[in-house]
């Protein structure tokens, strides 16, 4: 059933428009060069935010190596560590860093830590319906909208649109909240950074996928929701976010994500199981090399995420040596 759901959701995602920023891959990243004798079957279990990327990468990879079989599942970042530990997947894509308890569980089984590869940069966006006049919010305001603990110390809980300056059709209308389910890295990241580690309100509607958050916001005029920027459709708009109350609001652009000015940008990871001092399976290594190549990073751009710089890509590649 879950599979049907995912299929339906990813269908929706693929049909959505890609965002319009002109981001190009760093010219210093080398093209992928094909090796010989790569085959086998590769499994990936983990983040829902990364499922499309994994699918595109695997397609691109299979063009070079038709003998390689892929199986990709995406139910949330928290599903990656158990899968890596049980050995049911070679790749654990995650939209957040592993927690120390998850690393601990891995170490307990294998005696070493899992290897973390940064594969793309994502910005979490706060979406409203495209007709909504709202332009920007500060992080404490977002906290006051989504959280019941308000760790940012924002003075008042925000429940109505006129509390953040909207008038007309929006005045006195309650804000309808959409978000991701707790298995997702997006949920954890948003909780830690936008909610200052506080708790979500009970009224945040937890959606099983990033695309259904965007769908929900699109269909609900008075909605606000968060999910990966790559899931933006023409029916919603991402608002600019100010890191503190009174600071200038920052748009979710590549430059702002790289410089760290946009407060909700993060890395996307793939975790692999590599014993220290030993080489990984050649198919695993080549797949990672493909992801970090020019072709792999172009897919990142195509899917609406931001690519790594040449320097970052090289650093990541060195981790598998």
């Amino acid at each position: 059933m879950k599979k049907v759901l995912l299929l339906a959701l990813s269908g929706l995602v693929l049909s959505t428009g890609l965002f319009s920023q002109n981001v190009s891959v760093d010219g210093a990243i080398p093209s992928y060069s094909k090796k010989s004798g790569i085959s086998g079957s590769l499994n990936s279990i983990g983040s829902d935010s990364l499922i499309n990327l994994m699918a595109f990468w695997s397609e691109g990879f299979k063009k070079s190596y038709p003998g390689v079989k892929f199986q990709i599942e995406g139910k949330g970042s928290s599903t990656a560590p158990p899968a890596l530990i049980e050995g049911s997947a070679q790749f654990g894509p995650m939209s957040r860093k592993m927690k120390s308890s998850e690393i601990e569980a891995f170490v307990k089984k294998y005696g070493y830590k899992p290897t973390e590869i940064v594969v793309a940069i994502d910005t979490l966006a706060v979406f409203v319906s495209k007709d909504n006049p709202l332009k920007s919010l500060s992080l404490p305001q977002i906290d006051a909208i989504f959280s019941k603990t308000r760790n940012s110390k924002y003075a008042k809980e925000i429940t109505l649109w006129n509390q953040i300056g909207l008038s007309g059709a929006y005045s006195n209308k309650p804000i309808s909240l959409y978000g991701r389910n707790s298995a997702s890295g997006t949920y954890g990241y948003f909780k830690e950074h936008a909610l200052y580690k506080g708790d979500f309100k009970n009224t945040v509607k937890e959606q099983p996928g990033s695309a259904s958050v965007v769908q929900g916001v699109e269909k609900d005029k008075f909605a606000i929701g968060y999910s990966g920027f790559g899931y933006k459709t023409s029916g919603v708009k991402a608002i600019a976010i100010a890191p503190t109350e009174g600071a200038a609001a920052v748009e979710a652009t590549y430059a702002n994500a790289l410089s760290g000015k946009y407060p909700l940008s993060r890395h996307l990871y793939i975790y692999v199981n590599k014993a220290p001092g030993k080489a990984v399976d050649p198919a695993v290594k080549e797949f990672i090399a493909y992801i970090l190549s020019k072709e792999g990073q172009e897919i990142v751009v195509k899917d609406g995420y931001f690519p790594l710089t040449a320097n970052m890509a090289k650093q990541q590649l060195d981790k598998l040596k």
């Binding site: 928290s78 298995a183 954890g188 950074h193 580690k197």
Partner: peptide, 8 residues
């Protein structure tokens, strides 16, 4: 609210 982003 069974999980959070951090261990603490």
């Amino acid at each position: 609210q069974s999980t959070g982003g951090a261990d603490d």
